[in-house]
Design a protein around this nucleic acid. Structure first.
Lengths: 341, 341
DNA sequence: AATTAAATTGCAATCGATTGCGCATATAAA
DNA sequence: TTTATATGCGCAATCGATTGCAATTTAATT
């Protein structure tokens, strides 16, 4: 009795002299089973310590109740906020979430996508890496009708639901703010242009400059991978120009931080000599000195929305390919790094 | 031909007029299959676009090649370093990793553990939450012989492999350093004592004090959940004491940060008036002003070790319960918050 | 009471890969 | 040529739950 490891629905059925199918239906709350038998079966199942074999059920139903999340780095506040949002919705609706980080490495992203596909996740939520320029590993999903939602770093070439922040307006607002604070020679440290969000932030920057009648000097534009090191190199390069910037719009907080630290070391004062605005509202941006003005992105809400859209796709049998793109608002947070006292 | 969605080993077998079992063995590199047939099968499989149905294989073999990771917060540098370490090893050895965060919420931890167990992860790597005081949800694994490895916040009551940092020596070194820098009335903001690491950090603190002949005043000891808010409340309380501290050893960097910010607001200078040391070496501790002296924990290495131990358990058929505990070294990083100029 | 409709439950196939066991075929030894 | 010994492959059961359809029971209706 104790040895054959797990009790199955057949064990329950045998004990009660009924069919396994009845047990299955009862435990799945199929309304076709009468209340008394359901109660009896549930009671017996509990007594016998029954645990459904999810692997068997998954195999049979071809569903896993699992949502895959693929993103560059879980260690970014924005991304981990998104994850929390996804989890909140997913868990409440009976889905487990499996998270994988690509470290912005394309090969790893491919491999992860393959693995998740093979493991038959019911749907995938993705923010692509900086190196990602081809998308076959993601088309795999869309072509085989596996629900797919992009967020933040989305892929234009694939039709799917998308959730982005208003990077354009974020870039615009940040730049406008720098201009209001007196910036005239404004530089931009941006991300790789194959990633749409960085295109948009740049576009916002340029339009704000143009609107104010300020020139956009190519020497004032730098594009890199936005790491700490990249940021330091960028600010170094900017300081080597003949015309030095008096303000910088950084496409993330990390490079803003690099700039601030480097400038401090060089005795150049932020915000007195150079105004700085970052992007993303990383937690450190509030506590560093000077605190960094930045653009807040509603990560948690984006995550919730992404999960909601994905689950909607999963539940919807008819794959009516009406894909939508949601643009979430950004908010300028003014702190010390961009305001002269 | 094109319609029945996926090609199976039976399709391949039929096409080649061989048995499905041969196909299965060939694709699994079973040496019992001769080289020519293997080659042929592999070629045909590729041509037919065969993708193994992992759900079926998992079901049959009762294995998933999946490792579960449960931890409080992925958004902590230490934890995400551990995750990276785990992933590095796991992926190289053919395991997928599924990560879940408990937010230090006991109910969520329970639910996650249940889900992962039901989903038949091959093994589990856990760091428990602050509220976790009962362990049935984890015994589930150890009792059913599912490999289990604890790291950092381990559970003494369960026999398993464990990887901890040398919290005692970390606490000792931090305190010793504060004493060397001239601290005499040293306070400690610690975590909940049901979590072993905080016991150990406290013990290190006490022993260092005793060794230096300094008294440990109960009023100088505070225990909470080490959040930003908790940190602020703690420093407030300490300042209300008749005898004010001239140095504080904080059990994490977050509370150290809270203290620094609060003290700055109150016009109390760090390190001139109060010396501070944190714990964990969060990235912000380096960039905040003053930069926070802290104890570095080798998260990445711990993650690698944890995955290695777990996979070793998984591969080892005989569950010889020789469980080990590994203690990783800590390192004191001296920055500005603890050194008077 | 007989007939019909509705509500329950059972039968048995099925999902796709794995694997113990046994049957061939081939090679080596006698 | 016959008997051993590998070597390579096929047969068929199996894992546990799900589900279309058939069968049975119960309730409703005339």
């Amino acid at each position: 009795m104790e040895k054959h490891s797990e009790t199955t629905i057949h064990d329950i059925a045998r004990k009660l002299n009924i069919a396994a199918s009845t047990v299955s239906r009862a435990l799945n709350n199929n309304p076709i089973i009468s209340e008394p038998t359901r109660k009896l079966i549930e009671k017996t199942a509990k007594e016998m310590g029954y645990r459904p074999n999810i692997l068997a059920a998954n195999f049979r139903t071809k569903r896993t109740n699992m949502i895959g999340v693929v993103l560059p780095l879980i260690n970014r506040h924005f991304f981990s906020s998104v994850i929390s949002g996804i989890e909140e919705v997913a868990y409440n609706r009976g889905f487990a979430v499996t998270i994988s980080q690509t470290n912005d490495n394309f090969e790893k992203e491919e491999k992860i996508a393959q693995t998740l596909f093979s493991n038959r996740v019911d749907g995938l939520i993705v923010s692509i890496g900086m190196q990602t320029k081809t998308f076959d590993h993601l088309r795999l999903f869309s072509e085989r009708k596996v629900p797919l939602v992009f967020f933040d770093r989305v892929v234009d070439e694939i039709e799917a639901d998308k959730i982005v922040v208003d990077d354009y307006r974020g870039g615009f607002k940040a730049t406008e703010h720098l201009i209001k604070q007196g910036g005239t020679r404004i530089a931009h440290i941006g991300g790789p242009l194959n990633v749409k969000i960085y295109q948009d932030r740049l576009a916002g920057f340029k339009d704000a400059m143009q609107k104010a009648g300020l020139p956009v000097d190519e020497l004032m534009l730098i594009h890199n991978s936005l790491t700490r090191t990249d940021g330091t190199n960028a600010i170094k390069k900017l300081l080597q120009n003949k015309i030095k910037p008096d303000a910088i719009f950084c496409a993330n907080d990390t490079t803003a931080l690099s700039a601030i630290i480097y400038l401090r070391k060089k005795g150049i004062k932020v915000p007195d000599d150079i105004l700085i605005v970052g992007f993303s509202n990383e937690p450190f941006s509030e506590v560093v000195t000077p605190s960094i003005s930045t653009i807040r992105q509603p990560g948690f809400e984006m995550g919730k929305k992404a999960a909601d859209l994905l689950i909607r796709q999963i539940k919807l049998k008819d794959k009516s390919n009406r894909f939508q793109t949601f643009v979430m608002p950004t908010e300028l947070i003014v702190r010390d790094s961009s305001v002269r006292k």
